Simulated assay, not measured.
Amino acid sequence: MGYIAPELYSRNFGGVSYKSDVYSFSMLVLEMVSGRRNSDPSVENQDEVYLPEWIYEKVINGQEWELTLEMTAEDKEKMRQLTIVALWCIQWNPKNWPSMTKVVNMLTGRLQNLHIPPKPFVSSDNRPMPQNTTNT
């Protein structure tokens, strides 16, 4: 369930579009960069842990997680880039998700050109992705 784009199971998020795979891709990327599962069976109450929120807080606070302890600076930069792109792809409103073409451009661009997205899980701070997110 954690990988399915919201519009696939609820019409409240709009209709299914060519961007639906972007959400699933991004949730998988967030698991890979964090070393955590979206639904962690070792956590007693799943409501206490929401992977995107945990990751978002780490990103905006400039914190690192366990996986980064033995990484090079270049690897850490790539991990941050993957994370920021993935957070753009799970915004509350699917209309704000980038296309997969845009995702590829963001991933092959420079980290310095990426803006941190608004919280992807709070609709009150929802704004569209800036058009100048990468040099393309």
Rank of each mutant, 00 (worst) to 15 (best):
residue 133 T to I: 15
residue 64 E to V: 06
residue 103 V to Q: 00
residue 117 P to N: 04
residue 56 Y to I: 11
residue 67 L to M: 03
residue 117 P to G: 07
residue 96 N to Q: 12
residue 57 E to D: 10
residue 54 W to M: 04
residue 61 N to E: 13
residue 43 V to N: 12
residue 122 V to K: 00
residue 39 S to K: 12
residue 48 E to S: 09
residue 69 L to E: 15
residue 52 P to L: 06
residue 14 G to M: 12
residue 99 S to H: 01
residue 126 N to A: 12
residue 100 M to C: 06
residue 127 R to T: 10
residue 54 W to Q: 02
residue 64 E to C: 03
residue 60 I to M: 06
residue 61 N to M: 13
residue 96 N to W: 13
residue 20 S to N: 14
residue 19 K to V: 06
residue 79 M to A: 09
residue 106 M to H: 10
residue 96 N to C: 13
residue 130 P to K: 14
residue 115 H to D: 12
residue 74 E to Q: 12
residue 61 N to W: 08
residue 75 D to V: 08
residue 20 S to P: 11
residue 42 S to M: 10
residue 11 R to L: 08
residue 74 E to S: 05
residue 39 S to F: 06
residue 73 A to H: 06
residue 126 N to E: 15
residue 98 P to A: 00
residue 5 A to E: 15
residue 21 D to E: 14
residue 69 L to T: 11
residue 63 Q to P: 02
residue 3 Y to E: 05
residue 21 D to W: 11
residue 88 W to G: 00
residue 41 P to V: 10
residue 44 E to K: 12
residue 110 R to F: 10
residue 130 P to H: 05
residue 87 L to V: 07
residue 112 Q to P: 03
residue 86 A to N: 00
residue 76 K to W: 04
residue 8 L to F: 15
residue 87 L to K: 01
residue 125 D to H: 10
residue 70 E to V: 03
residue 33 V to N: 01
residue 121 F to H: 12
residue 110 R to W: 06
residue 128 P to S: 12
residue 42 S to P: 05
residue 90 I to C: 00
residue 120 P to G: 01
residue 57 E to Y: 09
residue 89 C to L: 00
residue 89 C to E: 13
residue 67 L to C: 02
residue 15 G to T: 13
residue 19 K to R: 02
residue 101 T to C: 00
residue 109 G to E: 04
residue 108 T to H: 11
residue 51 L to S: 03
residue 27 M to G: 01
residue 47 D to I: 08
residue 22 V to A: 08
residue 87 L to I: 04
residue 35 G to A: 01
residue 63 Q to M: 13
residue 124 S to H: 08
residue 117 P to L: 07
residue 84 I to V: 13
residue 39 S to C: 07
residue 49 V to K: 14
residue 97 W to M: 03
residue 57 E to P: 02
residue 134 T to F: 15
residue 134 T to A: 08
residue 69 L to F: 12
residue 63 Q to N: 03
residue 60 I to K: 05
residue 86 A to E: 03
residue 68 T to I: 08
residue 122 V to Y: 05
